[in-house]
Design a protein around this nucleic acid. Structure first.
Lengths: 146, 146
DNA sequence: TTTCATTTGAGAATCATTTGCAACAAAGAC
DNA sequence: GTCTTTGTTGCAAATGATTCTCAAATGAAA
């Protein structure tokens, strides 16, 4: 059983829940995508296995609580997520014009964030940094003003 | 006319739009709340003036584009905003347990963010930093595990 | 006060997400 | 094995925030 599957199973057991075939399938799908995904995307990946969209929606919060995925940007009215293991935390730069998403490492920001956390006695579970604006391609063109 | 009203009017004119009584009312409401608010909240504040919820929803994106408000945390499936003028940018620390929202200044992080932006040639319009976890009150109690 | 474009309220329509429910498993207890 | 209990799932229906439609209202300008 893969690393994150073990982690998920442990988490589930602690809540008296089970690691079912469906849940394992969803977890696997989430880790097979190395970019953002939304519920629909996962569903597309596994619907062949007769997993319903409702189950995907039911599983997402579990993965979230288990600390295996994280909620990131919201695009087109849809929540988007990404897996965490082997996917170091990063900031998202979202272009308002072309909707490109650029990712950058958080390491430059982490020291300052952790310092703040200590001061607040806050236990960090998830960090989400989204910066919107115009990417280099769009800052001159498409949008003539601003 | 207040500062941010001037700003809004300018913005609207640039798009061939008008600063109507309703829009001014919504802007005013947005600036009267010194915390996060959602569409419904603004609506409650001004429905006595016969402004419809639809108009609130229609105006929010304008305020956003005009750089007068910013989208922050999403709670209970609702988009939340806050005004910007006189309300320096800050990070949000969201407690998963008691849902408290703590705000901290961004100044410690801005230099690093701006540096990154320069490297990416990215034009920042909006920065949203949300850190979730457990606040000091909840990290020991309520939730026995974790 | 005519004209023409923009706004608006009201309610219907959308669409992601949640839920209710009945049928299904899984894991023990016997 | 066979009960029993408890969690799981697919399906369809419900929910609820947000968006859209459209006809009436308003505003600016001539």
């Amino acid at each position: 059983m893969i690393d994150h599957e073990v982690q998920f199973k442990k988490f589930l057991q602690k809540q008296g829940l089970k690691l079912t075939r469906n849940r394992a399938r969803i977890l696997e799908a989430a880790f097979s995508v190395h970019e953002h995904f939304d519920a629909e995307k996962l569903y597309d990946l596994i619907k062949a296995d007769n997993v319903s969209l409702a189950t995907v929606y039911r599983t997402l919060p579990l993965l979230l609580e288990a600390g295996l995925i994280t909620r990131t940007v919201r695009i087109g009215g849809r929540d988007r997520f990404e897996h965490i293991l082997g996917h170091p935390r990063h900031a998202h730069w979202l272009c308002e014009n072309c909707h490109a998403v650029i990712e950058t490492d958080l390491s430059a920001l982490l020291p300052a964030i952790n310092k703040e956390a200590r001061a607040l006695k806050f236990d960090i579970q998830n960090i989400s940094i989204n910066i919107s604006g115009l990417c280099w391609k769009c800052k001159g063109g498409a949008n003539d003003s601003q």
